[in-house]
Amino acid sequence: MDGRSAELAQVDLRIPAAPEDLEKLAPGNVVYLDGMVYTAREGVYRKVLEEGAPLPDGLAAASNANFHCSPAAAREPDGTFNVGGVTATASFRFSKWMPRWFEVSGAKVVIGKGGMSGPDYREHFVPAGAVYLTTVGYGTGALLGRGIRRVHDVHWLDELGIAQAMWVFEVERFGPFLVDSDLAGNSLFEEQGRLVNENLDRVYAGLRPPALRRYGETDDREEELI
């Protein structure tokens, strides 16, 4: 096969992640995780940050890695869970909860899909000493499913449902992930986006805009949807 992607550096990261390990991460590093990872998205954020429910006992000590994801899981008659795969969900929607979540949970690693905006990193992640890892693809659900050793615990399942419950997974060589934002808030997506934008005028050259505009439409190709 090709040799091009061999150029990316690979890092194994133990969770809970220590500050000195996080310091070594740079945008574009390939990361695999070992330890404990929990899922939390809007359901859990509302529950804890808006309704004031306390975090599950011992969570902060066991893990500081928050995965924006819902597993494909089913409850078996004997009460255990069959987790087939896990795939991240787009993180940008959770921006408004992140500053308080960092305070309350002590999270240092946020894993999700697509990253967050540059300002989010610099205003919320950098002060909290947190990095952002993005899943790859984003459809690598089967590979990630393989990395889950077992369901350690699940919280608020009946109340929030399978998709929104907080799942605590014991993981081993869980990945691959790519570092998007490092501790200084340098973002891989921002940098790659800039490079792609440089090419766009050439691609659009000569194509007239349609006769009927759309309300609020812009021709600024640097803009992003998130």
Binding site: S5, G28, V30, T89, G141, A142, G145
Partner: peptide, 28 residues
């Protein structure tokens, strides 16, 4: 380099899904 890494990971992922009989993407 990065785009190629993503594609290669996806090929591995499809193989893992078929071998393990698990969904290729958890967002089904």
């Amino acid at each position: 380099t990065l785009s190629c890494f993503v594609l290669r990971s996806m090929v591995e992922n499809y193989e893992a899904a078929s071998t393990d009989r698990r969904p290729m993407c958890a967002d089904t």
